[in-house]
C-alpha cells in the first residue's frame, strides 16, 4: 500500500517535473536569468568591498551571513537532538560501535596522520577567504581527525582526550562567538553582522589577516564544526 502510493506519487511528480524542465533555461547558458546585478556585485574583481577573494566566502560570511548563522544553528539543533536521544542508552539490542584496535601498524599510522590532517585543517580554516574551503570544510577535517583517533584507539581513550561536556561547551561557545562578532557590528554603530560597514578592517588584499569579521567568523565556525563532529561521534559510539 505504502509502496503503491509512493510509486504513484513518483510517476506524477516525474511527469510534472520533466515537462517543466523541458522549458527551463538551458544548462550553462551565459545569459541565464540568474546572471544579474546581484551576481555582478558578488563577483566584483579583486578583494572588493568585503576584503575577501573567495566569492562564495563573501556570500556565506558577509552578504548573507545571517543565513549562515541559521545554518550553524541547524547544526547545533541536530546535534543537541541527537545527544538527547542517545543519552542513557539501555536497550536490549545495544550496539558498541568503537572498541578500538590493537593493531600496531594502524596505531602508528594514525599517530602520524592525525597531526598532518590537523595542520591541513587549520590551513583550510584560516584561508577560507583566499582559497577554496573555509570554516565548514576545515572544521569537518579537524573533526574527522578526532573521529579517526576514536575509531583506532577506542572510545574510552578518545573520551580522555575530549570529554563530552567540554565538547558541548566548545560548541556552544563557538556559536556564541558568532553572535558576539555580529553584535560587534551593532556596538560599532552599524547593523548586526556588519563587516566593513561597521569598521572591521578589510586588511591588505590577499593577506592572511584580512577580511575583517569574515575571518573571525570563519575561525569560530571552524572550531564549532570540529567540536560538533567530534561530539556527535562521541555520543554515537558509546553511552554517556
Amino acid at each position: 500500500m505504502r509502496q503503491l502510493g509512493a510509486t504513484a506519487l513518483l510517476v506524477v511528480a516525474a511527469a510534472v517535473l520533466f515537462a517543466t524542465l523541458a522549458e527551463a533555461p538551458p544548462f550553462g547558458w551565459q545569459e541565464a536569468p540568474t546572471r544579474n546585478v546581484i551576481t555582478d556585485r558578488y563577483l566584483a574583481p579583486g578583494a572588493g568591498e568585503t576584503g575577501v577573494l573567495n566569492a562564495v566566502t563573501r556570500i556565506i560570511f558577509d552578504y548573507r551571513s545571517y543565513d549562515t548563522l541559521g545554518e550553524a544553528t541547524v547544526l547545533f539543533v541536530g546535534v543537541a537532538a541527537a545527544v538527547v536521544v542517545l543519552s542513557g542508552r539501555t536497550g536490549r539490542f545495544a550496539v558498541r560501535l568503537a572498541g578500538g584496535s590493537d593493531d600496531p601498524v594502524l596505531q602508528t599510522v594514525t599517530r602520524v596522520v592525525v597531526p598532518l590532517v590537523q595542520v591541513f585543517a587549520a590551513y583550510v580554516i584560516t584561508h577560507g577567504h583566499l582559497s577554496p574551503g573555509g570554516g565548514f570544510a576545515g572544521g569537518t577535517m579537524l573533526g574527522a581527525s578526532f573521529v579517526l583517533y576514536l575509531f583506532v584507539f577506542g572510545a574510552d581513550r578518545a573520551r580522555r582526550k575530549l570529554r563530552p561536556e567540554t565538547g558541548e561547551m566548545v560548541e556552544g561557545g563557538a556559536a556564541v562567538w558568532y553572535v558576539l562578532v555580529g553584535l560587534g557590528g551593532v556596538l560599532m554603530g552599524a547593523s548586526f553582522l556588519a563587516n566593513a560597514a561597521a569598521g572591521f578592517p578589510r586588511g591588505v588584499e590577499g593577506a592572511l589577516l584580512s577580511g575583517g569579521a569574515v575571518w573571525l567568523i570563519g575561525l569560530g565556525i571552524g572550531v564549532k564544526v570540529a567540536a560538533t563532529v567530534a561530539n556527535l561521534f562521541l555520543h554515537l559510539t558509546g553511552e554517556d
Binding site: 556585485r41 558577509d62 552578504y63 548573507r64 548586526f192 553582522l193 556588519a194 563587516n195 560597514a197
Partner: peptide, 15 residues
C-alpha cells in the same frame, strides 16, 4: 525594515 550586515536587498538579507 532591517538590513542584516548593512547590505541592502537584493544583495543582503532583509528582516
Amino acid at each position: 525594515q532591517y538590513y542584516v550586515g548593512d547590505w541592502p536587498p537584493p544583495w543582503g538579507i532583509e528582516v
